Lab assay of single mutants.
Amino acid sequence: YFQGQLNAMAHQIQEMFPQVPYHLVLQDLQLTRSVEITTDNILEGRI
């Protein structure tokens, strides 16, 4: 994955969860590489 793709995914998640800091979303995406998994992590309070 290149950074631009991760940034696009992070923006997509931020639209759904504007209360979660962008850098935390991006940090999780770098591990998961998945909008779905990061979204689940937010919903389950891991982020």
Rank of each mutant, 00 (worst) to 15 (best):
Y1P: 14
Y1N: 15
F2N: 15
G4N: 10
G4P: 09
G4A: 14
G4Q: 13
G4W: 10
Q5M: 14
Q5E: 15
A8R: 07
A8H: 09
M9Q: 06
M9H: 06
M9A: 06
M9R: 05
A10N: 01
A10K: 02
H11G: 07
Q12T: 10
I13Q: 00
I13W: 02
I13A: 01
I13P: 00
I13E: 00
Q14I: 12
Q14L: 13
Q14V: 14
Q14S: 12
E15A: 12
E15T: 11
M16Q: 10
M16G: 05
M16I: 09
F17A: 01
F17T: 01
F17C: 06
P18R: 04
Q19P: 02
Q19W: 15
Q19R: 09
V20D: 06
P21D: 14
P21N: 08
P21Q: 07
Y22F: 13
Y22R: 13
Y22V: 13
Y22A: 13
H23Q: 10
H23W: 13
H23V: 07
L24Y: 06
L24F: 06
L24H: 07
V25Y: 04
L26F: 09
Q27A: 13
Q27M: 11
L29I: 07
L29K: 00
Q30M: 15
Q30S: 08
Q30H: 11
Q30V: 11
Q30E: 13
L31G: 06
T32E: 02
T32Y: 04
R33I: 08
R33N: 14
S34C: 05
S34R: 03
S34Y: 03
S34A: 04
E36P: 07
E36S: 12
E36I: 09
E36Q: 12
I37P: 01
T38K: 00
T38S: 03
T38F: 02
T38D: 01
T39F: 07
D40M: 15
D40Y: 10
N41P: 01
N41R: 08
N41E: 01
L43G: 03
L43Q: 07
E44D: 08
G45A: 04
G45H: 05
G45S: 05
I47N: 02
I47F: 07
I47T: 04
